[in-house]
């Protein structure tokens, strides 16, 4: 029974990692990365590594999306200003 949950967690991580690679738009990819982080944290918990799971949770749930989205916003705004000037 304990292996079943490990298999489910591994499958979920594999699927969400593939989706994260397959998504091209950075904003949508940030959403998928957030779900990937949660699934990774669950995998670490299932493999009895709660400290690593906690670090993964703390970083991926709010910090990485914020950094990614701020960077995307800055790049998009700079692009829009350039087009405005041309």
């Amino acid at each position: 029974m304990a292996d079943a949950v490990i298999v489910v967690a591994l499958l979920l991580v594999a699927a969400s990692a593939t989706v994260a690679v397959a998504t091209r738009d950075p904003m949508r990819q940030a959403l998928v990365l957030s779900v990937l982080g949660v699934v990774l944290a669950v995998l670490f918990t299932v493999l009895q590594a709660p400290d690593v799971g906690l670090s993964q949770l703390a970083v991926c749930s709010a910090l990485t999306p914020l950094l990614l989205m701020l960077a995307v916003r800055k790049v998009r705004r700079r692009g829009r200003e350039r087009e405005g000037e041309r």
Partner: peptide
């Protein structure tokens, strides 16, 4: 019982992540 802290952090920061997306999108 010490694994409950993971649930605590996810309950606290999960909605914060969604707020990040709500605000920046």
């Amino acid at each position: 019982p010490s694994y409950v802290d993971l649930g605590l952090v996810l309950a606290l920061l999960g909605p914060v992540g969604t707020l990040v997306f709500a605000r920046l999108l």
